[in-house]
Structure formats: C-alpha cells, structure tokens
Design a protein around this nucleic acid. Structure first.
Lengths: 146, 146
DNA sequence: GGCATATATTTGCATTTGCAAATATATGCC
DNA sequence: GGCATATATTTGCAAATGCAAATATATGCC
C-alpha cells in the first residue's frame, strides 16, 4: 500500500490547498476573496458570460457563485443584467472599477504563479499544465451525474 | 495576460477539487468523508501519531481535524489516548474496525488513483508527483506565518 | 394563446470550516 | 514547590459551502 503522500489525489489537493490559502491571504487586503478573483479573472478573459458559463469555467458551484456575485455587485465590480434574447440567463460584465481591481490584483496572481513554479524548467511547467488538464479530463466520467 | 485556465494554481485547484468531490461521493456509502479517509490512511502509514502530527501530515487544519476525530471516535474507528510521557498530546490509534474500514476503502482510493492518471506514462506520473511536491515546497515560505 | 415541461438563477437551510479563545498539561526559573 | 511562560488540543462562533426547493423565464404542443 502506498503511503498517503504518494497518492496523486492527495498531492494534488495538498499543493492546491496551500497555494489557495496563501494567495487568499495575499489578496485579502484588497477586499477580494479567491472565488471573487476567479470570477473577475474569468470575466476579464471574456466579458458578458452568463452565471452558468462562469460557473463551469471557474468550477465554482453555481449557488456559491451566485453569492460571490452578490458581493462583487455590491462592491460595484461586476454588473448583472438579464439577457435580452433569453431572459432566463443573467449576463455579467466587469465595471470600470472591476477592471481596475483586476489590474491591481493581477501582479499578485502572477507572483504566485512564479513562486509556485520556481525552480521548474519551462519544459516541466508545460508538462505540469498538460498533466493537470489530463487529470481533470480523466475525472469527467466519474463526476457526479447531473 | 494569461487566460485563467493557463494558471498553474487554477489548474491545480480545479483538478484537485474535481477528484475530491468525486472520491467523496464514492466513499459516502461507507459513511466516511474525505478528511476521515485521509486521517485513516495516515494512521495506517503510522499508528500512534499525535493530533498535531496527523494535522501536519494530512494538511487538515487542527481544529477541523479535532472534529473529524470526534466522528471517527464515535464510530469506533480510532482511539484517542493521552500520551503517558507527555500528557499534553493525544495519541491516535486505529481500532480493529478502523483497520477493516481501511481495507474496504483502499480499493476505491486505488481506483481513483488509477482513473486520475489514466493515459499517462509511468514517466509522466513520476514527473507529476515530483512537480507537485516541488510546488508544495515552493509555497513554504509564503504560507501564513505561525 | 394556454398549459406542461425544460432551463437558468437565487434562496433556505443544514453542514463544514477556520480563526480565536478556552482548557489541559509541561517546563523553566525563583 | 509555585508561578510564569510555552505547547497541545478542544470548543465557541461566525462565515462559506452545497444541496434542494423556490422563482423566473422559455419552448413545444395542443
């Protein structure tokens, strides 16, 4: 039997959790949480996503995301608007303040990326990203059925 | 600026969270949660650890772990005992029922390991483990100061 | 057009979490 | 030995989470 710290799922969660805790602490002074940052970053990638799209993209559970959006909206970083073509969906847009916040937090995110991969060759980094995507995809079939 | 899904911290959390959710679901019928399983597995590696040791080893926050242990003790899978030499610490031991539970859950854990790394060469798996350990170590300096 | 069914989002509620305070014991110093 | 300080664990409490139910809107069929 493998010791706990030879299991990929454990190693993965352990590393992920540590980075998450550390990054959260770093951005707290700016008044954003990690899920908030994920939402802001994903909206920077593509503005005007719906709540459902953003949920898939960020892997934030949709009811949790709804409340994260409450916070972002209250702080006027994000705008919610019922879509014109399909009023079941709500589209999300960064406000100018939201974009400013992204510009302020981005350097921290980049610093954490750099710290995380410090000492790894760029080849290693490429491999790591590839493997993490593969792992995620591998779990597709086993995810809770909708 | 990188899109969200090129950031290592994001890829890491995403993959880790998906495996965690899926595994949790798989072991729920046996009445164990993921943190419970981690504790049981770590105690299988080495019996008689203290609560603090187990907390570091599993990366479960110590007050959370204390409550996880409440559950494991209530279900008679783990025994708590004040250490004889230093009565500040509590040592933890698997009961026979605890060992039985480990034997029952182990195949599921092994299946998840296999599914996670499906399609990866054994070289890739070795690389992945090495990189995940490196990442974890890299965050050492940035972790919240004690 | 009106009703039944489908999809998207939010809200209610119970559970889990983590920090900080409380408790228990140990060690060092007088 | 007794008190001050240090270490280990548990408990109180508030915040975050996820599931399921409630709400809002759409679509298909008659």
């Amino acid at each position: 039997m493998l010791p706990l710290d030879d299991y990929v799922p454990y190693l993965l969660n352990r590393a992920g959790a540590r980075i998450a805790v550390s990054f959260s602490e770093a951005v707290r002074p700016m008044g954003v949480t990690l899920p908030m940052w994920r939402a802001l970053a994903a909206l920077t990638d593509r503005d005007g996503q719906t709540v459902g799209e953003l949920s898939s993209r960020t892997s934030i559970e949709i009811s949790t995301l709804s409340r994260v959006l409450d916070g972002l909206q209250r702080r006027k970083l994000v705008e919610r608007k019922r879509a014109e073509d399909d009023a079941r969906v709500v589209t999300l847009r960064l406000t100018p303040a939201g974009r400013t916040m992204v510009r302020r937090v981005m350097p921290i995110a980049e610093r954490y990326e750099r710290v995380a991969i410090a000492g790894l060759s760029s080849r290693d980094v490429a491999t790591l990203k590839r493997l993490l995507r593969a792992l995620y995809a591998n779990m597709d079939g086993l995810a809770p059925r909708p």
